[in-house]
Nucleic acid binder design. Structure first.
Lengths: 250, 250
DNA sequence: CGCGATTTGTGCACGCCTTCACAAGCGCCT
DNA sequence: AGGCGCTTGTGAAGGCGTGCACAAATCGCG
């Protein structure tokens, strides 16, 4: 695990040396890198040349020590007494995340959510390009959504191979998700973003990330529940404003 | 709603009073409870009366020991030698998550994503009801989306109070998100689900959860990048590949 | 009625992540 | 040139979460 890009000039470490195993980046760190990246872009547009770990941490909403450790993991160079060079750090993080190469994405399932995802600006603006849309509903096939024609899901396998699609987004109903995932995997897709509320079973070399909007709300609901029961505490059980809604078993 | 929580769970459960939070419930556990709940609903519809930790764990995609520990945290009762009663466990988890009371949700920002969220089935079917839509764009105000009229954001504060909205969903562009959050907080909203790619600053009593679709893709991109660098590049000067792809074994 | 099969609940150890605190390094000012 | 203040990078400690392995508990059956 020799840290290759260590030691040479800080300016251009980006070679064609894509054949480089990454140091074992902690998963938690990886999950934060995109956030740092976004904050850095904002800072850059605001005209900042350099930024301190304190400043960047604030912009990203994390602890500054954590941020420094994260950046140190990827061998990034800051300058003591000064901070991090914004442009350089952006390049570094984009390189690590593999964003220097635009990745082809396909989207399966064009219900409400899929429709929105097809038009979501945040994808294109951050290095991803949706190159194909699929749905099982014949009546949707052929329809153009945000400049892209919807194809029938039967073509998914073929097109995924042709277009060298690396990432598949599943926005189908849960019942169809596993079958779609199977087709994607067969077509060589090795990363899946799953919006369907179900567990996908895939080979171990395929990465799946799941986003479940209702789960997020349920987690918030728990905290609401907790807070509601706490507000009754201070100063005794005074009249909690809406406390009686509490449908608590006797 | 017959919410029969077990009366005398071990330890700290202080009666059946509403004033019972679960302050010591690990955050990681909370995040998994909705997943268990979904799996349980599926099992229940499939006709299962009881389920073992092994079976439920498989359906939820987690380790069975973890599942047992999670459930034990909330004082839930399974039956040794048998498993968990599906119906009872559903009630327990729904109670803990506060889902026995339908929570009013408002949605701010009706671009592509907001539009989809407004029509997302998963909300209503899992205890949440969107009661109001807001947007800053005058041309959208008055429009009906999935049976609900869009109101102007200037009414947000008043309506949020009137409708006792507890959870706000922000689907605006990032530039507007903080202002919306401020209004929500002023109106007494204590939980926010933020889809805007930016950090929100709120009082400590307000919970914010963030969902950033692009970040998920970027995380997947990293893994793609990593996987690509592990496979020997056919045409490249891959002299050192033997050592590099050894990253797995180390 | 007791025994074995089964499954829960949990003590324990391990590893990951976070946070603190500080030495090392860098630039600026005098 | 030298000292001073600022910031990074990191060692160490503590906390949290995970997974194993097993005792305790329950049911079914002979």
């Amino acid at each position: 695990m020799s840290q290759q890009r260590h030691g040479s000039t800080p300016g251009h470490v980006r070679g064609d040396d894509a054949v480089q195993a990454f140091p074992d980046l902690p998963e938690a760190t990886i999950a934060r890198l995109p956030e740092y990246l976004r904050a850095l872009h904002n800072l850059g547009e605001a005209g900042a040349d350099t930024v301190s770990s304190e400043g960047l941490a604030a912009a990203a909403g994390v602890n500054s020590a954590k941020l420094r450790k994260d950046l140190s993991h990827l061998g990034s160079y800051g300058t003591r007494g000064v901070g991090y060079d914004v442009t350089l750090l952006i390049e570094q993080i984009e390189y690590v995340l593999g964003l220097d190469q635009r990745r082809a994405v396909c989207l399966v399932g064009l219900g409400n959510l899929g429709h929105a995802l097809a038009g979501y600006d945040g994808f294109a603006s951050r290095g991803f390009k949706i190159v194909a849309l699929f749905d099982a509903d014949e009546s949707k096939v052929g329809e153009h959504i945000h400049g892209l024609a919807v194809r029938h899901i039967a073509d998914l396998g073929r097109v995924a191979v042709e277009e060298k699609i690396a990432i598949g987004v599943i926005a189908t109903p849960p019942g169809a998700a596993q079958a779609v995932a199977d087709v994607l995997v067969d077509a060589g897709v090795t990363s899946i973003l799953n919006f369907a509320p179900c567990v996908l079973s895939v080979p171990s070399n395929v990465d799946v990330r799941k986003v479940d909007l209702a789960i997020e709300l349920q987690i918030l609901s728990f905290h609401e529940h907790r807070k509601a029961s706490l507000t009754a505490l201070p100063g005794g059980r005074s009249a909690a404003t809406a406390g009686n809604q509490e449908a608590v078993g006797s």
